[in-house]
Amino acid sequence: MLELTDINVRFGGAHVLRDVSVAVAGGQIHGLIGPNGSGKTTLLNAISGFVPCTGTITLDGGRLNRLAAHRRTNKGLGRTFQNPKAPEDMTVADLLRLGEHGVKTLPWHTVAFRPWKAAQEQRQFNERCEHMLTSLGLDPGLLERELGTIASGDLKMIDIARALMARPRLLALDEPTSGMNDEEIDILLARLERLRESGLTVLIVEHNVRVVTDICDRVTVLSLGAILAEGPPGEIMRRSDVIDAYLGEEDDGEPPATPEMPPAETGHDTPDSAFRA
Rank of each mutant, 00 (worst) to 15 (best):
182 D>A: 15
107 P>K: 04
222 L>H: 03
44 L>Y: 03
180 M>Q: 06
28 Q>W: 03
143 L>P: 06
207 H>G: 10
248 G>N: 13
56 T>Q: 11
234 G>H: 15
13 G>R: 14
78 G>S: 04
262 P>R: 03
106 L>C: 01
124 Q>T: 01
202 V>C: 12
212 V>D: 07
104 K>I: 00
265 E>Y: 02
1 M>R: 08
244 D>M: 07
143 L>T: 09
201 T>Y: 13
72 R>D: 01
9 V>Y: 03
57 I>N: 03
87 P>M: 05
175 E>A: 10
266 T>H: 15
171 L>Q: 04
198 S>C: 01
44 L>Q: 03
263 P>D: 11
142 L>G: 09
38 S>D: 00
241 D>P: 09
156 K>F: 06
230 E>G: 12
25 A>E: 15
262 P>W: 04
15 H>N: 12
275 F>Q: 11
216 C>L: 09
52 P>R: 11
140 P>D: 08
173 L>T: 07
188 L>I: 10
224 L>I: 00
224 L>C: 01
248 G>D: 14
152 S>D: 08
101 H>D: 03
29 I>L: 11
40 K>M: 09
276 R>C: 01
68 A>C: 04
31 G>F: 07
15 H>E: 12
99 G>V: 06
166 A>W: 03
10 R>Y: 15
176 P>K: 05
201 T>M: 10
98 L>S: 06
196 R>M: 06
267 G>K: 07
14 A>L: 15
220 T>C: 02
177 T>D: 06
93 A>F: 12
168 P>T: 12
215 I>G: 06
272 D>C: 00
248 G>V: 12
243 I>V: 13
184 E>G: 07
154 D>K: 11
116 W>V: 07
82 Q>L: 06
18 R>S: 13
27 G>I: 02
121 E>T: 02
136 L>F: 11
207 H>P: 12
162 R>S: 10
162 R>Y: 04
113 F>H: 12
102 G>H: 11
35 P>I: 02
40 K>F: 07
52 P>C: 08
123 R>W: 14
243 I>P: 08
74 N>G: 14
70 H>L: 01
261 M>E: 11
177 T>P: 09
76 G>Q: 03
246 Y>T: 10
238 R>C: 10
250 E>A: 15
209 V>A: 15
84 P>T: 05
4 L>G: 05
231 G>F: 09
18 R>N: 13
176 P>H: 08
43 L>E: 08
96 L>G: 08
213 T>N: 08
131 H>R: 13
157 M>V: 09
185 I>V: 15
198 S>Q: 10
261 M>S: 10
171 L>K: 04
165 M>G: 04
122 Q>P: 00
95 L>Y: 12
73 T>L: 02
215 I>L: 13
43 L>A: 06
119 A>F: 06
237 M>T: 15
267 G>P: 00
235 E>H: 15
131 H>C: 03
178 S>L: 09
138 L>K: 05
24 V>R: 07
220 T>A: 07
33 I>W: 10
136 L>D: 06
165 M>N: 05
76 G>A: 04
117 K>V: 10
219 V>I: 13
24 V>Y: 13
134 T>F: 12
263 P>V: 12
57 I>Y: 05
155 L>N: 02
47 I>R: 07
103 V>M: 08
102 G>D: 06
144 E>D: 15
128 R>F: 00
92 V>M: 05
79 R>F: 00
49 G>Y: 05
217 D>E: 13
115 P>C: 07
41 T>I: 02
33 I>E: 04
267 G>S: 06
